[in-house]
Computed example of a mutant assay.
Amino acid sequence: MTNITGTTQSHPHPDIQLRWPASVLWRDGDPQVRTITTADVWTSLREGVDDFRAMPTHVVFACILYPVVGIVLARLLFGYEMLPLLYPMAAGFALLGPFVAIGLYELSRRRELGLDISPARALDVLHRPGIDAVFTLGAVLALAFAGWLYLANVMYTQIIGSEPTSLSDFFQQVMGTDRGTQLMVTGNLVGFIFALLVLVTSVVSFPMLIDRDVGVGAAVRTSVRAALENPIPVALWGLIVASGLLLGALPLLIGLAIVLPILGHATWHLYRKLVVKE
């Protein structure tokens, strides 16, 4: 492995070379990272669809999403204070998705090994060696989601100023004014930064914690290295995730009952391609 000064460092797999800046994140004993292509990303997505067909869990996700949609709609009946947060909430699924999908990683792992893949087996993830680290990293994502919603609300308050009095008033504020344009540009830029940080740190970290008994530090380092070594494939994956979540969120979030399982299974297969097996 080549370090920042250009010298060579040895590691357990000398046939796998890490380029700078990914090389500076190397620690002895960390999992090895592969270089992949965009074709591998599309293959992972197809394999995710195949897993979903073999292990359909959309009913489970629908049972979770329907109450959420009901609460949001009920709240809107009593006022329009939540309207400015609807888009940030929908966009925020990209921040929580890696943690929400941990049961799907377990099902894909079990299918790969030829084990029982009934939906209830997704709960076996709670018995994996790295589950404590999974919840620790999940708490970090929850804080990122809360921080994103807080900043989104602050940006709306500072740029737009007044709360909407109706649905038409909200769309007029956002879509028909210069302040609305400023809000959309600023909000999407800040949201992109949040999503990029989560993508880079979690693209393989959660599946790895399900698959191996490693710590949060090793999982996050490996995820960042994988992203640095494969910027175009990982960027494509981020675009696929964002597009899928957007399409799934449009019909009152219900489409996420299909999109989330497919992306979750596909994430497992992308992890398998990015990180060398033990």
Rank of each mutant, 00 (worst) to 15 (best):
A139W: 12
L96W: 10
G6W: 13
R75L: 06
A22M: 03
D51P: 09
Y66I: 07
Y105V: 06
H11W: 04
A101L: 11
G92Y: 12
T2C: 10
T181Y: 13
L274G: 12
S202P: 03
L141S: 10
T8D: 06
I240D: 08
G180H: 03
A39I: 09
T177D: 10
L209Q: 15
P88Q: 09
N153P: 13
V174W: 01
A94P: 14
H127F: 14
V220S: 04
I36A: 02
S166C: 01
I131T: 14
M175H: 04
G92F: 10
D132F: 15
R225V: 03
R225N: 05
S205G: 07
G114M: 10
L137R: 09
L252V: 03
A219G: 11
H265D: 05
R110W: 04
L65Q: 00
L167E: 06
M155C: 12
P56V: 02
W268I: 04
P88E: 05
T35H: 07
S166V: 00
V204N: 06
W20G: 09
I240F: 11
H265I: 08
G114C: 04
A227Q: 00
V224G: 01
I193K: 02
D169Q: 03
A219M: 07
A242G: 13
P84G: 13
G147D: 13
A266L: 15
A227G: 00
T181H: 13
F192D: 01
R121A: 08
V276N: 09
R225W: 05
P164E: 00
L115R: 12
S10T: 11
I71G: 00
L137C: 10
L209N: 05
L65W: 00
A219F: 14
F194Y: 02
V60C: 13
S108G: 06
I117Q: 07
L73W: 09
L247G: 15
A195D: 00
A39E: 12
G215I: 13
G79N: 02
L196H: 05
L260K: 14
R19N: 07
Y80F: 09
I117W: 04
A139K: 14
L196C: 08
N153L: 15
V259H: 04
S166Y: 01
L25W: 04
L260D: 05
A122H: 11
D15V: 11
V198A: 00
L247M: 14
I240S: 08
R27L: 06
Y271L: 06
Y105A: 11
A22V: 02
A74Q: 15
L236E: 06
L228A: 00
